[in-house]
Amino acid sequence: MDLPKIVAHRTEGGWMLEAEGLAPAYIRRLSEAEDCGHALMKAANAPGADNGIQLTVDLGDELNQRVKAATQATVDAYKAQLQAARELRRTASALKNQGMTGRDIAHVLHISPQRVSQLLAQSVTAEG
């Protein structure tokens, strides 16, 4: 069953919660929206309200797009960081397999010898 939908809009001094078939409700802080919206939907006997609500924050087209883009950029950066860490582990392992010492690997990769030890330990764990 779908959760009841509530849209929060910024107003002067707070937020307006809108749901189909209900009068708008006003709250001071967005952090109150889920609890207030859930209480409103339960009081209105909205189908699915016992399971919660689906809250959407509408800041207008421009800000909605900026929030979406910023959130996506954060996700993309996290994925890139994970990929970079995998590649660094593989590279450290390949250098070790070529007979290089941990200190030499550290120098080549511009990282500390301690980080080399961590990477090599992680690559063994990832393979095993």
Results as ranks from 00 to 15, higher is better:
Met16Arg: 09
Thr74Phe: 14
Gln72Asn: 11
Ala23Cys: 07
Ile27Glu: 09
Asp50Tyr: 02
Leu40Lys: 01
Ser112Trp: 00
Arg10Ile: 04
Ala69Asp: 13
Ile111Ala: 03
Val108His: 04
Ala77Ser: 11
Val57Asn: 00
Thr74Ser: 14
Ala69Phe: 08
Arg66Gln: 11
Ala8His: 00
Lys5Ile: 08
Ile53Lys: 03
Trp15Ala: 02
Glu18Trp: 02
Val7Ser: 06
Ala80Tyr: 08
Asp76Cys: 01
Gly102Pro: 01
Val75Gln: 13
Thr101Tyr: 02
Ser31Tyr: 09
Gly14Asn: 05
Lys79Asn: 13
Asp2Asn: 10
His107Arg: 12
Ala70Lys: 12
Glu127Met: 12
Arg115Trp: 01
Arg89Ser: 08
Lys96Asn: 10
Glu32Trp: 09
Asn97Ala: 14
Arg115Tyr: 01
Leu30Ile: 10
Ala49Tyr: 12
Ala23Gly: 10
Ala8Asn: 00
Asn97Leu: 14
Tyr78Glu: 15
Leu119Val: 08
Glu32Gly: 06
Lys96Cys: 07
Ala94Lys: 14
His107Thr: 10
Val75Glu: 13
Gln54Ile: 03
Arg28Glu: 15
Gly21Trp: 03
Ser31Val: 14
Ala49Gln: 11
Lys79Val: 06
Arg29Leu: 10
Ile111Trp: 03
Tyr26Phe: 08
Asn97Glu: 13
Ser93His: 13
Arg86Glu: 13
Asn97Gly: 15
Thr71Pro: 00
Arg29Tyr: 12
Ala126Asp: 13
Ala8Val: 01
Ile27Asp: 06
Asp58Met: 01
Ala19Gly: 07
Ala19Ser: 13
His107Gln: 11
Pro4Ser: 00
Glu87Trp: 01
Asn97Gln: 15
Thr56Pro: 01
Gly13Leu: 03
Leu40Ile: 02
Gly102Ala: 07
Val116Gln: 00
Gly102Arg: 15
Gly14Glu: 06
Ala121Cys: 01
Ala19Phe: 01
Ser123Leu: 06
Gly37Thr: 03
Ala44Trp: 08
Val124Lys: 09
Met100Gly: 01
Ala126His: 11
Ala126Lys: 11
Arg89Tyr: 02
Ile105Arg: 03
Arg28Ser: 14
Trp15Pro: 05
Gln81Tyr: 07
Gly48Met: 00
Met100Gln: 14
Ala77Asn: 14
Asn64Met: 09
Gln114Leu: 05
